[in-house]
Amino acid sequence: MAVYKRSYRAYSGRLTPEWSRFYILTRYALGNLFRSKFLTAAFVMCFFGPLVCMVGIYLNHNASVLALLHTRADQIINVNGKFFLGFLGMQGGLAFFLTAFIGPNTIAPDLANGALPLYFCRSFSRAEYVLGKLCALFYLLSLITWVPGLILFGIESNLSGVAWMWENRSLASGIFLGSVIWILMISLIAMALSAWVKWRIAAGAMVLGVMFFLSGFGAAVNGVLRSNIGHYMTPGSLITRVCADLFGVETPIEISVWSAWVGLLVMCGLCVLLLSRKVRAFEVVR
């Protein structure tokens, strides 16, 4: 019907399946994020590291360059677990800063403008809402963490041969699993904090503050008590411990792997709890 008729009418067309509706939020959230030139520029900058690594890996296998530099292949870059742990550390750090900027944009504006009842008065659940927003962050952060990581792994496999790939196949799963855990954790932290601090800028500062505070507090606890308990309060330490195990690399963080997993799960659980308290149509004052 043409808009000029300006009449109310019921809708009798087909409906989209309910399970797929969370993705609508992801689509809108991603579109919204890339409207900011600053964030787009920051996002592009995040590809600088993988590009350098890519060039490094290529040079590492280029005989004429090696001859020119009078060096051996493994003297430029040694592509092993340590290399990928460092790569994920660098990209994970960038992902964290990016999340501190974009994470609060996901939930805080909806809470500040009271939009949640509009979402939940439809056949759309709170879990779908959180999942939709989380997916937007997951897609974005995947592009700067495990996707370039696996591309690097693929390039190295291509240049070193199938034998290298088979020998180091655990690195590929480590890249993927380590990145996914890190993305999930920082996304949940950013979303939970933005749900509690409705002001977007304050929420961003809070994300940075909480992470740095936890790291500092954890280090202080370790120093004062001469123990490793502080590592459990530091998300960075927990993820480094888990990733080191995934890549088969030694680490100075002396806590067991399973306890690091438990620590990460507890942190994610806390964030989900915080979200479940705040992401609701109306707050009930009891």
Binding site: Y11, L15, E18, R21, I24, L25, Y28, R122
Partner: peptide, 10 residues
């Protein structure tokens, strides 16, 4: 439009 899509409209 977003609200329409969330209600199930293509």
């Amino acid at each position: 439009r977003l609200m329409g899509e969330l209600s199930g409209l293509p």
